[in-house]
C-alpha cells in the first residue's frame, strides 16, 4: 500500500476518533439548547469541572470507572444548582441566560485555577484500552487502543440518549417539548421538572466528557474555552438541538482539524472556522437544524 494512502487513512482515523470526543462533549450542549433554547456558555467550564473531579477521584481510587462516575455526578449536582438558582428564574430569556452562564464560566474557571493550580493532570485509561493495538492500513501498523475505545464510548452515549429520548416517558416529554413547549405545558406536564432533568443531564454529559478527554489528552487551565468553542462549532454546523446533527458536525470538525494538521498545519484551526462560516452562509440553521 503506498505510504500516502496509509498516511491518509491514519489521518482519517485520527479525525474520527477526535470526532468521537467532540460528539460526547457537544451532546449535552445540543440537548440543553434543543429543549430549553438556553445557550450554556459555561459548558466548557463544566467540562473542566468534571475533568478535575475525575482527576481527584482517580487519584484517590485509581479506578477509571469511578473517576467517570465522579465527573458525571459532581457536574450533575452543580448543574442542578445552576438551574434552580439562576436559569429557571429567567426561563425563556435566551440572551440573559447566555450572559449569566458567561459570568459563571469565568467564576468556575478561576476557582478551579485556585484549587488545582496551573499544573497538568492526566487519567490513565481503563485496562481494556491501554497501550496500542495492531491494526492494518495505519502508520506503523499500530494505533492507540484508547482512541478506538472512545468511538465505542461515543456510540454508547449516542445509543443511551436515543433510548432515553425515544423509549422513555421523559424522553417523550422532551421531544414534545422541543416541538411545542406551550402545548406540553397545557397537557399538564410539569415542564420545569423536565427542564431541570435535561439541564442536569446535559451538564452531567459535559462532566463525563471531561473525564474521557482528560484520559485521551490531559487537563490544564484554558481547556474550558477550547471545548466551549468546539461544542459551539459542532452544533452550529450540525444544527442546534439535533443529536444526529451533533454527530455530523463532530465528524466534519474532527476530520477537518486532523486533515488540516497533517497537510496544512499552519492554518489547521482556522480551516474549521471557514467550514463553519460556509455552512451557515448557505444554511443558517445548520445542516440538520430546523429553521429558527
Amino acid at each position: 500500500m503506498p505510504k500516502a494512502l496509509v498516511d491518509f487513512l491514519t489521518v482519517l482515523l485520527n479525525g474520527v476518533t477526535l470526532a468521537a470526543l467532540y460528539f460526547v462533549v457537544a451532546s449535552g450542549f445540543t440537548l440543553i439548547f434543543g429543549l430549553m433554547r438556553t445557550t450554556n456558555m459555561a459548558h466548557g467550564s463544566l467540562y473542566m469541572l468534571g475533568a478535575y473531579a475525575g482527576v481527584s477521584a482517580y487519584t484517590a481510587t485509581g479506578n477509571w470507572l469511578i473517576a467517570l462516575v465522579a465527573g458525571f455526578a459532581v457536574v450533575v449536582v452543580v448543574g442542578v444548582v445552576i438551574h434552580l438558582g439562576l436559569l429557571s428564574r429567567m426561563a425563556g430569556q435566551d440572551l440573559r441566560q447566555a450572559l449569566v452562564t458567561i459570568g459563571l464560566s469565568i467564576i468556575i474557571a478561576d476557582l478551579l485555577l485556585a484549587k488545582y493550580g496551573g499544573l497538568t493532570f492526566q487519567i490513565e485509561p481503563p485496562s481494556v484500552a491501554t497501550g496500542s493495538v495492531a491494526i492494518p492500513f495505519v502508520v506503523n501498523g499500530t494505533y492507540s487502543a484508547y482512541r478506538l475505545f472512545m468511538i465505542a464510548v461515543a456510540a454508547a452515549v449516542y445509543g443511551g440518549l436515543w433510548l432515553v429520548l425515544n423509549r422513555t416517558r421523559i424522553g417523550w416529554y422532551i421531544r414534545a417539548g422541543i416541538d411545542d413547549r406551550d402545548m406540553l405545558s397545557a397537557l399538564g406536564v410539569n415542564v420545569s421538572r423536565v427542564f431541570l432533568f435535561v439541564f442536569a443531564l446535559g451538564a452531567g454529559l459535559a462532566g463525563l466528557s471531561g473525564v474521557i478527554g482528560t484520559t485521551a489528552l490531559s487537563i490544564s487551565p484554558g481547556e474550558d474555552g477550547r471545548y466551549l468553542l468546539s461544542s459551539l462549532v459542532v452544533v452550529i454546523v450540525g444544527g442546534m438541538g439535533s443529536l444526529g446533527g451533533a454527530v455530523i458536525g463532530a465528524l466534519i470538525i474532527g476530520l477537518s482539524e486532523q486533515i488540516g494538521l497533517f497537510y496544512a498545519p499552519t492554518y489547521s484551526i482556522f480551516i474549521t472556522f471557514v467550514i463553519m462560516a460556509a455552512v451557515l452562509a448557505v444554511r443558517p440553521q445548520g445542516l440538520l437544524g430546523r429553521p429558527a
Binding site: 445557550t39 435566551d94 440572551l95 452550529i236 462560516a277 443558517p284
Partner: peptide, 27 residues
C-alpha cells in the same frame, strides 16, 4: 455571512468569526 442568523445563533456565529480571525492573525 450572518445576515440570516438571529438571536443566540447570531451570537455564536459572530463569536466563531471572531475566533477564526484570532487564529488567522496568530498563525
Amino acid at each position: 455571512i450572518s445576515a440570516r442568523s438571529y438571536g443566540t445563533y447570531f451570537l455564536m456565529l459572530t463569536l466563531a468569526l471572531a475566533v477564526g480571525f484570532f487564529y488567522i492573525v496568530l498563525q
